[in-house]
């Protein structure tokens, strides 16, 4: 009776089943990749000039801020929360930074201030959510209102940025040749943020705790994980990303305008969801969100190629979002039945 019985459950055989037993949560990411490829293929077949280095390089350049926002948003959504403030915080930090630079402050001092401002907004949301049981939706909504109002308080009109370093981020093109691939420092920043985000989520305790909280906050707490600190930090990450997006977007437009980024929070959430992150938390990847932003950017490009009204972008994104959400819903329903 004292011998320990043995439970052996063999890993499923076969590449596909083994993969599914271990990495089922990557399936939505692949779905997004497939979608991206299909859009590209269809557009290339139709226009013939989509798959050019110039167009694809421009995708990264035009959506650099969105990549950064999507990374931050992924952290928050993985915990099961949501951050509606990112577009407004991006606008406010951009405005504030631009006004400081207009007053002659060097960009080396301004950029850290912008990041700190973003962090402060994230922290405020986190505190409301964590300490006062405010729903993330409402807390981040308040932050969104506040940031938007503050952006207008800085100035009702756009502020031109003449700081060389900021403009350099955008104007420098590291090019492989004329008419060939290029990348701007803003693009590099965006890719770095994606890389760092992915590594943090995969290889740090902070990152894993985020997944655990998203899987079951109660379990995470009972397991003795630092739930409070981690959730606060997730919102701070999103805030810092919004601040950084403010820097990048200011560089991109060469000016700050208080109306920047209206509706961007929705684009960001849509991109994250299309990239395979479950809104209920606990499942998803930064890389998926990157794919989601690419899908978003490609649709935007295709629609401008078509010369169609840009309202079609939102309609298409809405339709795609719907498709992905319904698919997610089916996946969740099936795994629940098991």
């Amino acid at each position: 009776m004292t011998s320990v019985p043995v439970t052996t459950e063999k890993a499923p055989t076969g590449v596909v089943r083994r993969f599914l037993s271990r990495r089922a949560s990557w399936v939505p990411v692949f779905a997004a990749v497939v979608l991206l490829v299909v859009i590209f293929a269809a557009a290339q077949a139709y226009f013939g000039n989509i798959l050019t280095p110039r167009v694809i390089s421009a995708l990264l350049l035009d959506n650099a801020y969105l990549f950064i926002l999507a990374v931050g948003m992924t952290f928050v959504i993985l915990t099961g929360g949501i951050d509606l403030s990112v577009g407004a915080v991006m606008a406010f930090t951009g405005m504030f930074g631009a006004s400081l630079m207009r007053d002659g402050m060097p960009s080396a001092a301004v950029v850290p201030i912008m990041l700190l401002l973003g962090a402060a907004f994230g922290l405020a949301i986190g505190v409301l959510v964590q300490y006062f049981d405010v729903q993330p939706f409402i807390a981040s909504l308040a932050a969104m209102f506040a940031a938007r109002g503050l952006a207008f308080m800085v100035s009702l009109d756009s502020i031109k940025v003449e700081d060389g370093a900021i403009l350099w981020l955008q104007s420098t093109r590291l090019q492989a040749g004329v008419g060939s691939w290029y990348i701007t420092p803003t693009g590099i920043i965006a890719l770095l943020v994606v890389l760092v985000g992915a590594l943090v989520l995969a290889f740090t305790r902070f990152g894993r705790t985020i997944y655990a909280i998203g899987g079951s906050e109660q379990s995470a707490r009972l397991m003795g994980l630092p739930v409070v600190r981690t959730k606060l930090l997730a919102y701070v990450v999103s805030g810092v990303c919004a601040g950084l997006a403010g820097v990048v977007f200011t560089a991109y437009t060469g000016a700050s305008y208080p109306l920047n980024g209206i509706g961007t929070e929705l684009d960001t959430i849509a991109a994250v969801v299309i990239g395979g992150t479950l809104l209920t938390g606990g499942s998803g990847y930064v890389v998926g969100s990157m794919i989601g932003v690419f899908v978003y950017g490609t649709i935007k490009t295709v629609i401008s190629f078509l010369g169609a009204d840009q309202s079609w972008t939102r309609i298409s994104i809405g339709a795609l979002l719907l498709m992905f959400v319904v698919v997610q819903r089916v996946i969740v329903a099936r795994s629940n039945r098991r």
């Binding site: 809104l279 209920t280 972008t313 939102r314 309609i315 979002l321 959400v325 329903a333």
Partner: peptide, 30 residues
């Protein structure tokens, strides 16, 4: 979407929030 398909309300209505204005723009021809 919410009651039959079972999509979370925030997302189900986000779809129309994103697409609805586009539809309105199309109706008014921009």
């Amino acid at each position: 979407l919410v009651a039959v398909v079972g999509v979370q309300p925030i997302i189900a209505t986000l779809v129309l929030m994103l697409a609805g204005r586009g539809v309105a723009l199309l109706i008014t021809g921009g």
